[in-house]
Design a protein around this nucleic acid. Structure first.
Length: 272
DNA sequence: CTCTTTGTTTGTAG
DNA sequence: GCTACAAACAAAGA
């Protein structure tokens, strides 16, 4: 699930439970998740310190270590964090386990191991080195900024939304939801959007991400008016009821949209 | 066995 | 440099 809202919930979770406990052991069950350092050195660089601060940029979570460096955590498609209170407990799909002196532990779990953990000097330097765009919820980001980004690309607006080098944090599911709320067709070339549409997109982006976070990134608590609940073959648009949502591949991922509410393109590549 | 999957990177080609 | 596409990564679930 880890797109921006989920990662923000993980950040808050880690912030509330995992700070200021000395780390006594780092167990790497899935070395493939580490980048930059072999497991033993990774552990050595972390042991004896404590997490003291949290940050997030897009889908990337950062935990500051008392020594000054930061642990970067990316969740891939299936990653997550759990705080366990019983000594030695390793949930299914445990990838890395950070054990604290109180016997508890912060566990990074990932069924498909597509995530990544590494150490970095600072979130800002990591973001620069990876050429990540501004965080989708960065308060400094303006509709004008979004407009500039969109005008600079001819690709489908959904692909631009999901490009982490342009804006960080939006993935396949939230991109669909944002476009649905903004009533924009996902295949519409980005540079064709007019001012009004850019404004709608900006508001929808803010609204969807903010509300998802307020609902603890728990889809069962998302409004009935969200396309989220109709993401299946035969799903009906929650707004116009009449139409069945369409599904098609865009950038190798399945895209859902309402053909009635989301117009703006001469219909092509559409299927049910 | 086949196909799909909330992500990212890399290679190829135009 | 931009765009598009495919494959790879790893593994579960339908």
């Amino acid at each position: 699930m880890p797109e921006l809202p989920e990662v923000e919930i993980f950040r808050r979770y880690a912030h509330s439970v995992a700070l200021h406990h000395p780390i006594v052991h780092v167990e790497v069950k899935a070395p493939v998740l580490l980048s930059g350092l072999p497991p033993d050195q990774f552990g050595r660089r972390i042991c004896g310190q404590a997490f003291t601060e949290t940050a997030r940029h897009g889908k990337h979570l950062f935990l500051k270590l008392s020594g000054g460096s930061w642990l970067m955590i990316h969740f891939g498609m299936t990653g997550g964090l759990t705080y366990v209170r019983s000594r030695g407990e390793c949930p299914r799909f445990t990838g890395v386990r950070f054990s604290f002196s109180n016997g508890h532990a912060l566990v990074y779990v990932s069924a498909r191991k597509l995530g990544q953990l590494c150490l970095t000097a600072q979130p800002a330097s990591f973001v620069t080195a990876r050429h990540l765009g501004p965080d989708a919820l960065d308060p400094c980001l303006t509709p004008q900024d979004l407009g500039r980004v969109l005008r600079s690309r001819k690709r489908a607006v959904k692909l631009v939304l999901m490009d982490q080098h342009l804006i960080a944090g939006i993935g396949n599911l939230y991109a669909d939801e944002i476009l649905f709320q903004a009533r924009l067709h996902p295949f519409q070339p980005a540079h064709q959007l007019n001012c009004r549409q850019v404004t709608r997109l900006f508001r929808a982006l803010r609204h969807v991400c903010t509300l998802a976070i307020a609902r603890d990134a728990n889809p069962s608590r998302y409004p009935r008016t969200w396309l989220w609940h109709a993401r299946f073959a035969g799903g009906r648009c929650p707004r116009c009821k009449a139409s069945v949502v369409h599904a098609a591949k865009l950038g190798s991922r399945t895209t859902y949209w309402c053909p009635q509410c989301q117009r703006g393109i001469s219909s092509s590549q559409e299927q049910t």
